[in-house]
Design a protein around this nucleic acid. Structure first.
Lengths: 150, 150
DNA sequence: ATATTTTAAGACAAAATTGTCTTAATTCAG
DNA sequence: CTGAATTAAGACAATTTTGTCTTAAAATAT
């Protein structure tokens, strides 16, 4: 899998959050029900996004999480980096430290262009782009078909 | 990391094998020393490549492993698929089963082009391409600088 | 034939990831 | 102020990945 499960869950949750009002907080329990993800596990993942200042959280009744900025202003790359780190956007395929233009590995040249493309699409795509796409076309963001955007 | 460690080790080993004579078998011990990979772990990985008919193995003195076809005729994709499976070349970023043109997820369109590009470069690049690149330019395929192609 | 070298196979251990649970801290409602 | 709802934090368990070790099987050389 290209991203860890944590990262996929983080993407699903943040894309969904971009589809609802940013005024109110949404409870993690509500999110975990909606997205069919274990509540406690999702809590831990969202804490990472909160620590990365992509989400804001609030305790107590009426508490929950919400995007800290407009969905149009948060890129998919930011979410991925907050959870899986920057490796996918920067790292050598063979995992060689310091691999780069100066000191490449044999796969460097064939991979660099593709890696840059991955970086590009994740940098230029916002959470809002994804939530809009999903909501307008009524696409699912969970394995089962039960998910609804409303 | 984009590929599992097993997969990276398998790539390093098969690229190296493409740089030497296909007549003789190279012992896994020799490979593991050269590539600085645990002997037993590498053995298991190479068994997967042998099971996938990318390598041939021979027991006993003078035994070892060698490419089962010319290095120019084995793609990087075959090696990756034999170890990590086809997911990276086919799978949805959000991990949704059945995600595709018919039944996409919100990320499908933005990802498909990049995924196809990954598929392309791994399909059109052979083990020989990589070993030639590495040998001619004397590039490393291990983290330390001790590796030598000769 | 026998001993040596080497891969094959699989049990086992360690580490990382994924998932669960409990307790504490904070916020809101009455 | 008190109680209920909710996130924060971290201990713990399960699973997967990574790595090690032992024994068996096969091939070579003498």
């Amino acid at each position: 899998m290209i991203f860890s499960k944590s990262c996929v869950y983080g993407l699903r949750a943040s894309i969904y959050l971009a589809s609802i009002s940013r005024e109110k907080y949404m409870s993690i329990k509500g999110l975990s029900d909606k997205l069919d993800i274990s509540f406690h596990f999702l809590t831990k993942i969202l804490q990472e996004l909160t620590a990365a200042d992509l989400l804001e959280s609030m305790k107590g009744p009426k508490g929950g999480v919400r995007l800290s900025r407009r969905g149009s202003d948060i890129t998919l790359k930011e979410v991925v980096e907050a959870i899986d780190g920057p490796a996918i956007f920067t790292e050598c395929v063979l995992g060689l430290p310091g691999c780069g233009h100066e000191k490449p590995c044999p796969m460097h040249d064939m991979w660099e262009g593709t890696r840059d493309k991955i970086n590009d699409v994740f940098t230029t795509t916002s959470l809002q782009d994804m939530s809009k796409e999903g909501k307008e076309k009524d696409l699912r963001i969970t394995p089962d078909g039960k998910f609804i955007w409303s």
